[in-house]
Amino acid sequence: MSVTSQEIQPVAAAHVSFGPPWYLREVYKYLATFAGLTIIYVGFRLYQGVFGVSTGLDSSEPAFATHWMRLLYIELAVLAVVFPALWGYLWFTRDQNMDAMSPKEEITRYFTLTMWISVYTFAVYWAGSYFAEQDNSWHQVSVRDTPFTANHIIEFYFNFPLYVLLGGSAWIYARTRLPLYAKGISVPLTLAVVGPFMILVSVGFNEWGHTFWFREEFFAAPIHWGFVIGVWFALGVGGILLQQVERLTELLNKIEDAA
């Protein structure tokens, strides 16, 4: 079902309502997504705590296949469903009449885009900070004997695709629901999504390097610099901020002030 700007009329200023103000229309979904993601990531960490040492030290053990390879297959299956579902949903429910959009609706959508990007950066946190550094820690305990170690299965094959999913969703949301982003392709938004996506691609370089080049866990080694360059592109968020504040200040001039 497609959505048009005419169908989504701005909510009247709710002086007596206890709900969120009109520009924070999606705030509950935003908070729920944060909560959901937190449960998933913390769940993964707890799973590692329970099964890491007991079954995750040797990839040739049957227990490894049961507890880790099976987890990998479940992750990949889930991602194979969620990727087309979410991106398809965003595309098929796109706004096909953006010219009719009111300033308040456009402001609201900028807020929602910011929430999408915020959820994206939350996923970047888990992938780029916690589970990334934990990789070094885990590979002091286990001797790396497979590309699918107990931390890689979560970091490389779930966390990385998940932030790609969320970054791509932010990109599609902007492209399908905001006039400026529909008329032209935002360079900073594209950089901020595509650059970190290349981190996922760099996994290939990393695994090649660990197989033929560096056998130890030297984190600052050149085989990891593909990840580093990819993450620099996250600085594109500065450009997204500037695009947003420029447009939002214009839009605020178009709406009447309320008490």
Partner: peptide, 27 residues
């Protein structure tokens, strides 16, 4: 909204950059 976004962005992105360039010295 921006502050929350920035908080996780810089923890995630800057930490990855640092971990993979000077990580071992810091670990």
């Amino acid at each position: 909204l921006i502050l929350v976004l920035a908080l996780f962005l810089f923890i995630g992105a800057f930490h990855l950059h640092v971990a993979l360039t000077v990580g071992d010295w810091d670990f």
